[in-house]
């Protein structure tokens, strides 16, 4: 049986981000991509599930960046058995979560998995819509903010986080879609030599897909947060700090 993991590449925020002249997108030439952190957890959870159940793990992603291969090869090196990338004419388009889900759903359906694991959110999907949208399109049950899962008696039993650290244990009929917040253990390290070996020996399946017009919102403007003042760090001896503190409070009319 099959477990599908959806992998998305997102801009690496360690690098400096810039907005493209169009004003509606990041300057894609100046940024580099990393795998969405939550997708790494989804992959880890899938691999852990498969280690006990013997399922085949299929990593799948939309190659909106032209650099998805690296992420998929890494997934293969970590233990996924298949990797599929969806290619198409995405140049200059911002793929909304809904559009992404529409591209992914038919391919996932064809794979007939018993579980679909998706990162609970992504930098461009802070509202965490991918998992529920996929579930709706596929007509399968769904749980998000999942922090652990287990296949039991033809069901999947998941731990889902609620407000205030309360966890709820749920059972879902299969097939199901899970939005993974955290895998049971930290995503594993994969040695570079194994990634390189996989790049030589394994291959990534390619499916061409087409973006059809849908109800996706249209971005009008992208903006960085405005700087709103800076914190000042007080240093020096205790009395110096105290003097400075008094000065600051006085300046604001608080003393």
């Amino acid at each position: 049986m099959t477990i599908v993991v959806v992998m998305e590449q997102v801009p690496d925020v360690a690098e400096e981000l810039a907005i493209a002249p169009s004003g509606t997108d990041l300057d894609r030439d100046a940024i580099s991509y990393v795998v969405n952190e939550y997708d790494e957890h989804a992959l880890e959870e899938a691999l852990l599930l498969a280690e006990t159940s013997g399922d085949e793990v299929v990593a799948i992603g939309i190659d909106a960046t032209g650099e998805l291969d690296q992420a998929l090869y890494t997934a293969l090196a970590k233990g996924a058995q298949r990797a599929i990338k969806l290619t198409g004419d995405f140049e200059g388009t911002w793929l909304s979560t809904r559009t992404a889900a529409r591209l992914l759903a038919p391919v996932i359906e064809e794979l007939a998995p018993r579980l679909v694991l998706v990162g609970v959110q992504a930098p461009d999907d802070l509202d965490g819509q991918l998992a529920p949208t996929l579930a709706a399109l596929l007509g399968w049950p769904h749980a998000s903010v999942v922090v652990g899962s287990e296949l039991v008696n033809g069901m999947v039993r998941v731990r889902k986080e609620l407000w205030g650290g309360i966890t709820m244990l749920l059972e879902l009929a299969l097939p199901a879609v899970l939005g993974i917040q955290a895998a049971r253990q930290a995503p594993r390290y994969v040695p570079v030599s194994r990634v390189r070996q996989v790049m030589r020996e394994a291959s990534i399946e390619v499916r061409d897909v087409e973006v059809t017009s849908d109800l996706a919102p249209v971005p009008v403007r992208l903006r960085f947060p405005e700087e709103t003042g800076q914190a000042e760090l007080l240093t020096g001896s205790a009395s110096e700090i105290a003097d400075r503190l008094i000065e600051l409070l006085r300046a604001r009319g608080l003393l």
Partner: peptide, 9 residues
């Protein structure tokens, strides 16, 4: 490392 044993985070 090469057989993927967990390492210090």
């Amino acid at each position: 490392v090469s057989r993927g044993d967990p390492i210090d985070p």
